[in-house]
Design a protein around this nucleic acid. Structure first.
Lengths: 162, 162
DNA sequence: ACCTGAACACCGTTCAAGT
DNA sequence: ACCTGAACACCGTTCAAGT
């Protein structure tokens, strides 16, 4: 709060005219992050990646959206995007699958983002020359594919294969 | 730190003889939580539930283990249990699947635990008489089943069906 | 070896008072 | 309507000094 106030050239107490408390300010921030998630119907994998990338593009975005979603402040835009992509693909139990997918994406993204953040501060145990992020994209894709229902995860498969 | 010190009838600064900082103390706590996860080979679903329940039995256990795992402090016992159960079931890509499953379980459990915690403090938007936790067990089971590989998620199916 | 005491540099939040 | 100033009740952490 003090840092935000400083950036606005205002006293910290001024923020409490606009927000009841820190949590409500964070909920507004989370809403802006999720609002930037693309709605397009390019398949479940594209939808999941859109969410992940939106989270990654803000510092602590994943953890913030996870917590705000848990408190049921903020919108459920992310889940709506996933459920919609699942339905377009003809998945069964699209609501539950959408929830599970969202939980996976939020867990995965929070974990990866925290690890990257720690690494950039040199706070990770030294693992030699290995990339901290090695294999995590593969884990993400595998997880999404599995949760999407074992069907094709792309609504637009390569034409050459058709 | 101050609260822990008080519980031990000691000054907060005394803790810094035993731990370098708060994060290292939390890592030790996370290790004790994951150490309580049962290793049995009763299938992937049982393994995943064992992890979830271990997390639930400590205040903020899920978030704590998620963060500690992200920083790669503490053991990878939870992931080992999942990977082992996947292999016993004959799953392909057991390592990546184990990672994805762990991410899902951590995301799901963190979300559910934070929501329950907020609800018990009356911090959730009023949803009438609905249970805050409604349907979440179903989402968990569906997620685990999907990530387990679409195979049977139980190593001991009902005998009546055999 | 293990702990205390005192300090340092922070937090989020409240609220009377200003304009 | 919107902000300041000052305070309150907290944090994690350090470090000389004690025993």
């Amino acid at each position: 709060m003090r840092r935000i106030a400083a950036r606005l050239d205002v006293q910290p107490s001024a923020l409490y005219w606009h927000f009841a408390n820190k949590q409500e300010l964070l909920a507004e921030l989370a809403d802006r992050i999720t609002a930037s998630i693309p709605r397009g119907s390019n398949g479940v994998l594209a939808a999941a990646r859109g969410i992940r990338d939106a989270l990654f593009s803000y510092r602590d975005g994943a953890e913030l959206v996870l917590s705000t979603y848990a408190l049921q402040l903020g919108s459920s835009h992310a889940q709506a995007v996933l459920t919609e992509a699942l339905r377009a693909q003809g998945a069964t139990e699209a609501d539950d699958r959408g929830a599970a997918l969202l939980h996976f994406v939020l867990g995965h993204a929070t974990l990866v983002q925290q690890r990257m953040h720690a690494d950039s501060h040199g706070a990770l145990p030294d693992a030699g020359e290995a990339d901290v992020t090695a294999g995590l994209d593969r884990v993400f894709d595998l997880g999404v594919a599995a949760l999407a229902g074992g069907l094709s995860t792309s609504a637009t498969p390569p034409r050459a294969r058709a």
